[in-house]
Design a protein around this nucleic acid. Structure first.
Length: 785
DNA sequence: ACATTGAGGATTTTT
DNA sequence: TCCTCAATGT
């Protein structure tokens, strides 16, 4: 075992060594939080605590896997695999898989993801004869989800005066009714949605004393990461679980709370000290990640929020470059600037692709970056967006697996009963649903007893064949693992064959996706699990499905792929990158137009901005566009108010694209004008004139100037030049052929020509003593004589 | 029963 | 702009 304490600073060590009693760790961005958590768990285990008695709740599965691995490395054994470590959702799903029968659910319950939930809600709305144009499923779902996260059940919802007023005011008075019907339908389907995983866990603990006692005594030590992002249910559950031993350690940073839309309440972390007696508080304030400039800017920004837990992040790291604040004309030029800058940084500072991240507020912004990166031939990967498991073909396959395991699952049944096409049309399906409701049986039972309900001829035959097939698959569950069953399903249903037959590029991709799903099932089947309490490494289909609904794309991320990463700021939480670009720092986008109505909303946007800034280790770019396409239309945006909250002395403000060069202050208009339109000018017609020159379009296949050999190979300096005493770098935006200039190293010379892209101009200069050189104007210091 | 076409709506963030 | 849903035709 390593000497795991030696690499810790004083506060970190304090947090690791305080193992008994409640502990709150306030961990600033980049302060070594994960290190403390993993070391603390390792320390517990090294001192005889059984891994089975430790519960660690993280924000993502990836974080959990990483922690497990680090603990394993510290302890140098495989005990860590016995830890209960994972997201709230996955840990509770696992527990519920053993306990669900206690609260009336089948243990092999299905987990509905967001799409499934919406689809069920839509069906419920239609069955209630309501209009799904007015009761939009996602609005209704958000409302129900918020209620569940606040521990408000359908009955309480219907009786709550304020909620009813709100719904009435929004002209959606029937939400309570839909909520009740939805909850009932999920129950009937033997299914839980994401929120139910928390809600039903709470129900289990609060209504089943035996279950409560079991898990209270089991989890002697509890750790919760990202505590600032927990919601009411999560809070109540952990309170119940920790009540017996009170060895609860929460880690969080109120400045990074960015999930209130999911019901998270910052109160949980602010209140922690009042919830338990003798809470030990440790603050981790030394940042090991970012340069001083980045940290200064971040601190300054977050100080605009009220009611923070007082703390001051500091660092021993080098000062670092100023933060580049770059304005472009359009979102496309923003994308181009970012791609150009990445290439440039790679050549100048030898960064690899994986050192870069492009972060944005909304997923829709990714397209412009994608296009530019593709044009430049830079490898990239987008995180988030439509996940692998949300693709139609993947969901179809999984729907088969779901109905095989749980025949109550009507949602899965509806999805595949006629896919691939087997002659069971819309009319028949509707009839089945009506029959099922009338007879109070499941839809699948209606299928198996189709003859009793007046189905005839081809339709009856199709239904019977379908039922026989599903029942056959079901018999396989007893002695076959998940992979073998899945392969059988692929064969017998013609699902794989059908996709294979489609030779269009999209069809090919779909086929590959299904193959990839099969591969991942195989991989899962072959990976050993933790063996515990009779739950002996179950590799059946049921166990697989429990896992799959909670997978996200970032979980299967190959850490070492050398690609530029694109993701939303939310998805970037907890990650760090050498170079970070944050795009779209504009009013209505960031802060989002939806979040400027209350102080709380605005402060959350600011925290989000803070999270974005603090992802960067070395270099940070903040970009914004004058105008961007939205629904196919070009709309103007003001620069974000957040830009004005940053201290000028750490900023390097430039323009890019649109034919404009780096502009000195002299061209920026009067102080009054600047103050009244924010930095860089807003949308006034006058400003636009300055950019009226069409950008010098070069053909797409043109080699970027900095790829030309002369720009890469380092020219040998033949004659050293001592700069003149009055050497001051000039604004080179107006540099033209024929001008006389002085360079710090190469001395005096004459400009032969100016070339290169608009925001990365390169001058060819004939130096008197050093011959012709290509000089990048954005970086070289030149004095115009 | 199924494919094609056209209109209309969508963008906040996620387990 | 692009995607989804509903109506229409075969």
């Amino acid at each position: 075992m390593q000497d795991y304490l030696s690499g810790l600073n004083e506060q970190q060590r304090e947090a690791v060594l305080h193992v008994n009693g409640p502990l709150m760790i306030v961990a600033g961005a980049g302060s070594g939080k994960t290190k403390v958590l993993t070391t603390r768990i390792a320390h517990l285990m090294a001192n005889g605590v059984d891994a089975f008695n430790i519960l660690a709740l993280t924000f993502t599965n990836k974080a959990a896997a990483e922690m497990k691995e680090r603990i394993q490395r510290i302890l140098n054994n495989s005990e860590a695999r016995n830890l209960y470590i994972g997201t709230f959702h996955s840990v509770f799903a696992k527990i519920l898989r053993a306990e669900a029968h206690r609260i009336g659910y089948p243990n092999n319950f299905t987990i509905y993801d967001t799409d499934d939930s919406r689809s069920v809600i839509k069906a419920v709305i239609n069955e209630l004869q309501m209009d799904d144009k007015h009761y939009k499923p996602n609005i209704v779902h958000n409302r129900i989800s918020a209620a569940k996260n606040a521990l408000v059940g359908p009955t309480e919802y219907a009786l709550d005066y304020h909620l009813q007023q709100e719904d009435a005011r929004a002209n959606r008075p029937a939400i309570a009714q839909i909520y009740a019907a939805y909850a009932h339908k999920c129950f009937k389907n033997g299914a839980m949605d994401f929120d139910d995983l928390l809600l039903k866990m709470f129900e289990l603990l609060s209504t089943q004393p035996a279950a409560l006692a079991k898990y209270q005594s089991k989890f002697k030590y509890i750790m919760i990461d990202e505590y600032q992002d927990t919601n009411t249910v999560q809070y109540q559950i952990t309170k119940l679980l920790a009540a017996m031993h009170e060895n609860i350690c929460v880690v969080g940073d109120d400045a990074q709370s960015i999930y209130s839309f999911r019901g998270a309440t910052i109160e949980n972390i602010l209140q922690f000290q009042k919830d338990y007696d003798d809470v030990k508080v440790v603050k981790l304030e030394q940042n090991y990640r970012s340069t001083q400039s980045i940290l200064k800017v971040a601190n300054e920004v977050i100080n605009n929020n009220k009611g923070q837990i007082p703390k001051e992040l500091w660092t021993d790291n080098k000062p670092g470059d100023k933060i580049k604040v770059v304005r472009t004309m359009t979102d496309n030029e923003e994308g181009k600037f970012v791609a150009d800058s990445i290439k440039e940084q790679q050549l100048r500072n030898h960064y690899a692709n994986k050192d870069f991240a492009i972060l944005y507020r909304t997923n829709a912004q990714s397209r412009a970056y994608e296009e530019s990166l593709r044009k430049m031939g830079i490898a990239y990967k987008i995180y988030g967006g439509v996940s692998f498991y949300q693709r139609k073909e993947v969901k179809d396959m999984i729907a088969y697996l779901r109905i095989i395991v749980n025949q109550q699952d009507e949602e899965a049944l509806k999805r595949i009963i006629n896919y691939p096409v087997r002659g069971i049309g819309k009319t028949s399906i509707e009839k089945l649903i009506v029959v099922a409701n009338e007879q109070n049986i499941t839809m699948f039972e209606a299928v198996t007893r189709a003859a009793e309900f007046g189905f005839k001829g081809g339709t009856l035959e199709a239904l019977q064949n379908f039922a026989t097939m599903i029942k056959y698959f079901n018999t396989l569950l007893n002695d076959k693992n998940a992979y073998d069953v899945a392969v059988q399903v692929g064969k017998h249903t013609n699902l794989v064959k059908e996709l294979f037959g489609d030779k269009t590029p999209e069809g090919l991709a779909r086929y590959e996706n299904v193959q990839e799903l099969l591969n991942s099932i195989k991989e899962w089947t072959e990976t050993p699990d933790n063996f515990e309490d009779g739950e002996v490494g179950n590799k059946g289909l049921g166990a697989f499905l429990q896992n799959v609904s909670l997978f996200t794309d970032s979980d299967k991320d190959k850490e070492n792929e050398d690609v530029v990463k694109l993701m939303t700021i939310h998805a970037a939480k907890g990650l760090e990158f050498g170079c970070v670009f944050v795009g779209g720092i504009e009013e209505t986008l960031f802060p989002s137009a939806m979040s400027i109505n209350t102080r709380e909303e605005l402060e959350e946007e600011r925290r989000l901005f803070y999270v974005a800034i603090t992802r960067a280790k070395d270099r940070l770019w903040l970009t914004y566009a004058n105008a961007r396409y939205r629904f196919g239309q070009l709309v103007q945006n003001e620069p974000s108010r957040f830009l004005e909250e940053m201290p000028e002395e750490f900023l390097d403000k430039t323009y890019a694209g649109g034919g404009a060069r780096n502009q000195g202050m002299s061209n920026m208009g009067t102080a009054f004008e600047r103050m009244n339109r924010g930095f860089g000018g807003g949308s006034s017609g006058q400003t636009d004139l300055r950019y009226g020159v069409p950008p010098a379009k070069k053909p797409d296949n043109a080699r970027p100037s900095y790829l030309q050999p002369a720009a890469i190979s380092k020219p040998a300096v033949t004659a050293v030049h001592m700069p003149s005493e009055n050497f001051v770098a000039s604004d080179t935006s107006g540099l033209e052929a024929g001008m006389r200039v002085e360079h710090q190293k190469f001395g005096f010379g004459t400009v032969a020509k100016v070339e290169g892209s608009a925001h990365n101009p390169i001058a060819n200069i004939n130096f008197d003593n050093n011959g012709e050189k290509k000089i990048m104007l954005n970086y070289a210091k030149l004095r115009i004589l």
